[in-house]
Structures are given as structure tokens and as C-alpha cells.
């Protein structure tokens, strides 16, 4: 079946069998290997992508169901090739990843949370990543990474003047 998808802002047409999951479609048809295939039956969250900004397990959806949605994979997160976005950067800095297998799913889950909630509590963060399994980090640093990203994103949105005037005062 021919399906028109919108992936990371780009319109693509793929020809897939109905039984092809969205996961296999983005990996094998579109070559976007950053979306990871873990359990392939909806348990681990490694395959998480965003569908209209909402986290979705791409192994639990068929590509033929996905037309008309804005699909975001980890490849669509960074502002430009060779750069990292704030959340990716925070994961590196806070050691929020070890083997990296869960990381793309974690980052997309975090992104959808931070778009809704600029100042999430630890509980909010735990809930947001509760569907994503990590076998390496023990989750502590992932939570710290998301907190760090939230802090930086709040900073980006805050008006610059208060901190400037504080610097002035010190001088």
C-alpha cells in the first residue's frame, strides 16, 4: 500500500505492506535508524516517536495508520546537522546515557513533557518516562538531565534584563 507520511517536516511516500509497523518503516524504508527496535511489542519504549507532538510507540502502530500526522523522530530534534538540541546536550552533560539504546525514546518523551510543562517536578518527569526502560543508568541521571534541560529552556525563554542588571550591580 502506498502511504504518504510527514516525517521531520518532510513529506515522503512509502510503499509498504499493511503489516509494516511505523517503527520498521522509519528504520528500513526511510533509513532513520535513530529510532530503536527493542522489544517490538510495546514494552520498552525504545521505539518512541512523536505523533503531533505526543509520544507514541512506533512498534504499536502500523505505517498505514500514520498518514496525516506530523511524525518526529530523534533525527528531527536537532536544529541542524552536527548540532544537538538543548535536551540532547543536557543528556550528554548530565551523563543521562550509557549504551544509548533507550536514549532517543527518552529524549522524545522528555521533549513532549517539556513542551507541556516548563517546570516539571521529579514526579512529572518519572511519569513522563515511565513507559521507557533503561538497562544502564538506573534512571537517576536521566531525571537530572531532564531537569537540567528544563532549567536551560526556561532560561532561554526568560527576559534577559534581570540577570543583566544583576551583573551590573556586581560590577
Amino acid at each position: 500500500m502506498s502511504v504518504e507520511l510527514k516525517v521531520n517536516g518532510r513529506a515522503v511516500t512509502v510503499d509498504v505492506e499493511p503489516r509494516t509497523t511505523l517503527l520498521d518503516c522509519v528504520r528500513d524504508e526511510l533509513g532513520l535508524k535513530g529510532t530503536h527496535a527493542g522489544c517490538e511489542h510495546g514494552v520498552c519504549g525504545a521505539c518512541t516517536v512523536l505523533l503531533d507532538g505526543q509520544p507514541t510507540r512506533s512498534c504499536l502502530m502500523f505505517a498505514v495508520q500514520a498518514d496525516g500526522y506530523e511524525i518526529t523522530t530523534i533525527e528531527g530534534v536537532a536544529p541542524q546537522a552536527g548540532e544537538l538540541d538543548v535536551i540532547q546536550d543536557a543528556f550528554c552533560e548530565a551523563h543521562g546515557l550509557q549504551c544509548g539504546f533507550c536514549t532517543s525514546g527518552m529524549i522524545l518523551a522528555a521533549r513532549s513533557l517539556l513542551e507541556r510543562e516548563a517546570s516539571p517536578t521529579v514526579e512529572d518527569i518519572r511519569e513522563a518516562i515511565s513507559g521507557n526502560i533503561c538497562r544502564c543508568t538506573g534512571y537517576g541521571q536521566i531525571i537530572e538531565a531532564i531537569q537540567l534541560a528544563a532549567e536551560r529552556m526556561r532560561g532561554q525563554n526568560a527576559p534577559a534584563s534581570p540577570s543583566l542588571s544583576r551583573t551590573e550591580a556586581v560590577r
Binding site: 510495546g42 518523551a109 513532549s112 513507559g131
Partner: peptide, 9 residues
């Protein structure tokens, strides 16, 4: 009910 990524679908 489920997790955030299962409740969205």
C-alpha cells in the same frame, strides 16, 4: 491507565 505513550493511542 497505561503509560503516557500508550494513553496517546
Amino acid at each position: 491507565v497505561g503509560h503516557p505513550p500508550t494513553r496517546t493511542r
